[in-house]
């Protein structure tokens, strides 16, 4: 095992463990904090694929901005497992079955895909570097890129409209 492999397995274990803790934590604030750890582990994987830009943007956008807003809402509502109404037992069972089926479908789809035969290029690809990524986004994919930014703009306008209604 060289250092890359050790790092890979460490990050993988960290990501899966924290993802499980997101689900199993009883306190919603703890769940959010574990989710932030998941983002850190995934960013670590991006760095190992030489996609530093993606790694840091993942941290800035998800861990730095979106999770802060999550934390905001949860802290203000001050949810406790004791005072919260518990969900119906049958509803929980149905949720477990539905989630399990999704996992089954994903595994089955990935099992027959060609992804598993492709070897990951660790720390060699250059598409994740900011220069190449910017060029690709603004030449080959400029239309979808601009359309998605219009989508964000409409979401922003919607939020302002809802916020002004009082």
């Amino acid at each position: 095992m060289n250092i890359t492999e050790i790092l890979f397995w460490f990050l993988t274990a960290l990501a899966i463990l924290s993802a499980l803790m997101v689900v199993f934590s009883r306190n919603p604030v703890h769940s959010v904090l574990w989710l932030i750890l998941v983002f850190f582990a995934i960013s670590g994987h991006y760095i190992m694929l030489n996609a530093q830009f993606l790694a840091i943007v993942n941290l800035i956008v998800y861990a730095g901005a979106i999770m802060v807003l999550f934390l905001f809402v949860i802290m203000l509502m001050n949810m406790n497992s004791d005072s919260e109404p518990q969900k119906n037992k049958w509803l929980k069972m149905a949720g477990t079955v539905a989630g399990g089926s999704l996992l089954l479908i994903l595994v089955a789809a990935l099992k027959n895909s060609e992804v598993q035969y492709q070897k990951v290029e660790g720390a060699q690809g250059t598409i994740g570097l900011i220069h190449n990524l910017g060029k690709t986004l603004f030449t080959d994919y400029v239309v979808p890129f601009e359309i998605s930014s219009v989508l964000f703009l409409s979401a922003m306008v919607g939020a302002v409209v809802i916020g002004k209604k009082d």
Partner: peptide
């Protein structure tokens, strides 16, 4: 090669200590 963005990443983490 992402020095400035790295600083942003760390600054945006700085909220968590206070929160």
């Amino acid at each position: 090669n992402i020095g400035v963005l790295y600083i942003f990443g760390v600054v945006s983490m700085g909220v968590y200590g206070v929160m």
